[in-house]
Simulated assay, not measured.
Amino acid sequence: MIGNVNCIEIESLDHPGLEVYSRLTEAGLRGDGEIFIVESPKVISVALDSGLVPVSLLCERRHIAGQAAGIIARLDGVPVYTGDREVLAALTGYVLTRGVLCAMRRPEARSACEVCRGARRVAVLDSVVDSTNVGAVFRSAVALGVDAVLLAGGACDPLCRRSVRVSMGAVFLVPWARFDGGPDALRAMGFRTVAMALADSSVPLDSPLLRNEERLAIIIGNEGDGLPPATVAAADYVVRIPMAHGVDSLNAAAAAAVAFWELRVR
Rank of each mutant, 00 (worst) to 15 (best):
G221Q: 04
V238M: 08
A254V: 14
R240M: 13
T231Y: 02
G169A: 10
P208R: 07
A252H: 04
L210N: 06
P208A: 09
F260Y: 11
I218G: 00
F191P: 12
I218T: 12
Y237I: 09
I241H: 06
W261D: 03
V194P: 04
G182H: 06
E262G: 01
L205G: 02
D184P: 00
A234D: 14
R178N: 07
L250W: 02
L210F: 15
A197D: 09
A234F: 14
D184H: 07
V247D: 10
A256V: 02
L198S: 06
I219G: 00
L263V: 09
D184Y: 02
P175S: 07
A244D: 11
D180L: 03
V203P: 04
E223G: 06
A185W: 01
M189K: 09
L173I: 00
E223S: 07
G190P: 15
P242D: 11
R264C: 03
T231A: 11
A256F: 06
L186K: 13
W176F: 10
R192Q: 13
V247W: 06
M168D: 06
S207Q: 08
A254P: 14
A259C: 05
G226D: 04
G190K: 06
G224W: 09
A217S: 09
A234M: 02
F172Y: 08
P208Q: 05
A234E: 10
I220F: 04
F179G: 03
G246W: 13
R178S: 09
D180F: 08
G181H: 02
V194C: 10
L216V: 08
R211I: 11
A230N: 00
A257G: 12
A233R: 11
L186T: 10
A257N: 09
M168E: 14
A234N: 15
G224F: 09
L209S: 08
I219C: 01
Y237M: 04
P204S: 13
P175E: 10
L250E: 02
L210T: 07
P175R: 13
M189E: 15
V239R: 14
F260C: 06
L205T: 01
A234V: 03
F179E: 04
F260I: 09
S201C: 04
I219K: 02
E262S: 10
P175W: 12
L210M: 05
V232Q: 04
R264A: 10
D200E: 08
A244G: 11
A197V: 02
P242M: 12
E262Y: 04
F172A: 08
A234G: 14
I219A: 00
P183G: 08
A170E: 13
E213C: 12
M243F: 14
F172I: 15
G182C: 06
R211V: 05
I241L: 06
Y237L: 05
P208K: 14
G246V: 05
P242Q: 09
I218C: 03
V238H: 08
P204Y: 01
R264M: 03
G221P: 15
V203H: 07
V258P: 07
P228H: 01
M243K: 12
P175I: 05
M168Y: 07
P204V: 12
N222Q: 05
D206I: 02
